[in-house]
Design a binder for these strands. Sequence first.
DNA 1: CTGTTAGCGCTTTCAA
DNA 2: TTGAAAGCGCTAACAG
Lengths: 378, 378
Amino acid sequence: MSKRSTTLASLAAELGVSRTTVSNAYNRPDQLAPATRERILAAAAARGYAGPDPTARSLRTRRQGSVGVLLTEHLSYAFEDMASVDFLAGMAEASAGASTTLTLIPAGPDTVGAPDDAHAAQLVSSAAVDGFVVYSVAAGDAYLEAVRRRGLPVVVCDQPTDSGLPFVGIDDHVAIAPAAQALIDASHARIGILSIRLHRERHDGEVSAAQLAAADMHVQRARVQGALEVLRAAGIEGVPVVTRHINDSRTAYAAAEELLTAHPDLTAVLCTTDSMALGVLAYARDHGISVPEQLSVTGFDGIAPALAVGLSTVVQPNKAKGAAAGHMLADLIDRDAARGGRATAQPAEPPHKLLRTSYHPGSTVARPRGEQLLPGRG
Amino acid sequence: MSKRSTTLASLAAELGVSRTTVSNAYNRPDQLAPATRERILAAAAARGYAGPDPTARSLRTRRQGSVGVLLTEHLSYAFEDMASVDFLAGMAEASAGASTTLTLIPAGPDTVGAPDDAHAAQLVSSAAVDGFVVYSVAAGDAYLEAVRRRGLPVVVCDQPTDSGLPFVGIDDHVAIAPAAQALIDASHARIGILSIRLHRERHDGEVSAAQLAAADMHVQRARVQGALEVLRAAGIEGVPVVTRHINDSRTAYAAAEELLTAHPDLTAVLCTTDSMALGVLAYARDHGISVPEQLSVTGFDGIAPALAVGLSTVVQPNKAKGAAAGHMLADLIDRDAARGGRATAQPAEPPHKLLRTSYHPGSTVARPRGEQLLPGRG
DNA sequence: CTGTTAGCGCTTTCAA
DNA sequence: TTGAAAGCGCTAACAG
């Protein structure tokens, strides 16, 4: 029948001081005699008391000291995507600066109206955080909606682009233009596009203009549309667009195969992602297609392995995005706290920050040789 | 003078039901009439009430639904290290399974007795979690000590190996043997070792046997000693060991330069890390040293880029380690909860799980050509 | 199926 | 400098 364990109160009682005094020993060292403080800390150590219970403390102070992070995918996929890892590194940097902790909410696969929408809401509404950063999710994402309902400060990164919430990202539509233009400048006319999913529902294969217009993955849509626009301006129409649900080089390999088999006359493939471009490169290597002599390839993201192999790509500042999102959220939280948590009409437009991107010429774009491609086995 | 905001109590009052009923609407749907539940949920939605406050709930239930994760380095570095990212992916998987959240504690640089030891303690003791996983830290690490003091369930991954706490890892000493043996088998006699830091204090350069023996980074020590043992058994002594504080290919490049300049007769470099091996490969490429003809190289970890370039290396299951650590911790937490949180003598030995590794032959080990290496510029 | 009664462990005015 | 009182918002018994 031993007592539960040491608490601030029990410690105070044993030492014959008040709870306030013990509390001050931890939170306001200047508010009590150094000697008293020493005595308290020593007694705490002796009893294995590690300091005020964080939960009780948070309940009282209304601060959690943690921000929630929602990554698009099943977390375990997210960690395979270097872009989101870099983003997280940026968030980590910002949070270290703010002496804050990062709470990763593990998202399940995002199937529309799936039974685990409830699960999403559950996880989000029970996270002990002061705010959320939502990274690159589909329009109408269940987690995003749950976050909205929660009513805490939120920063959306990358997408959706029309949430009306504070935002950090890049202008994908504009950012991809140089890649498309590089292809035009090298006088390619038969170009294909490889993109990752435009919709939440799985759909692997070619997509129509209508499907594209209705995409709920705004980032991919902007990249594809941005590229198409440049091509159209150069008089190129009817560009095939093939998508894959997952963003990794293995699935990209299959996508490359599909695209180049269905359209063997292509001289260039523009990818909306470096991972996909890497997959195309692998496919080309395996099939004796030389890059860039027989096939030009461009990517998007600027991940290390892509840069390492000299991919022509658009480089975006993933880590800086994470840091920017982290700081923006910290500001919102501080502002909220300053208002004392009272609901108030938003003072102004929600902040909207666009970071700069740059085109990395690389070495995977060249003039087409004009000879027919005949990709085959072996 | 608007009221603060909706709470479970205020909602109950407005609806003329008891707090329990509202609570049940969220936590025990089967404990009340569906109609009542609907009415409550509807009223909640109307008032923007997102459900029971997580903090208050946790205070009451004594469960946080989150586990703390401590990564060795400044978080932002950790994300550059693929091994720790994979580990995190494994943790994420485990935590998704347990419907648990992951709380990343951003660690500052780990300088001994640094002023931010206090900061470490602060962050650790104020994290709202049910337990911790500590990933690969030095003996005596301030965060680990803080975690210990916290008194919650802990799982240590990789190192330190002598903490006496529940452990998940591999047997590094044994695991590296095949890499060393491969070099011996290829009849190398002049071998150098590149390792990342053996001590918490920065020390870049060659290390003595004494320094090695006193290392507080147990994993690196085990790898170096394991390799040396194999070499010694083959009659090779006086093997130079060069270390670098940071584990990335850029610093490894410099380390390779140092090692090969000081010992131009080496025919093989054994690295305790793939990142370092990749750096050696880059150095060799830039200096016209052909691998494996002029120089054999081995790594450790089995990260994707290393495997992609065919590095001869030891593959360890980072993701599985994360998952194992996550599950072990979940078990400890459950057990703890079952005991009702009462302090009890540990029932038995703390669990200790070693995962299997495998040697990946790759293509960076071959017989030495016997010709003198003359690494030079260009 | 619903309500009543007690706190969970802490911080914070406000006084002494 | 220290103490006493008053909750923060919720859930776990236990009755009804």
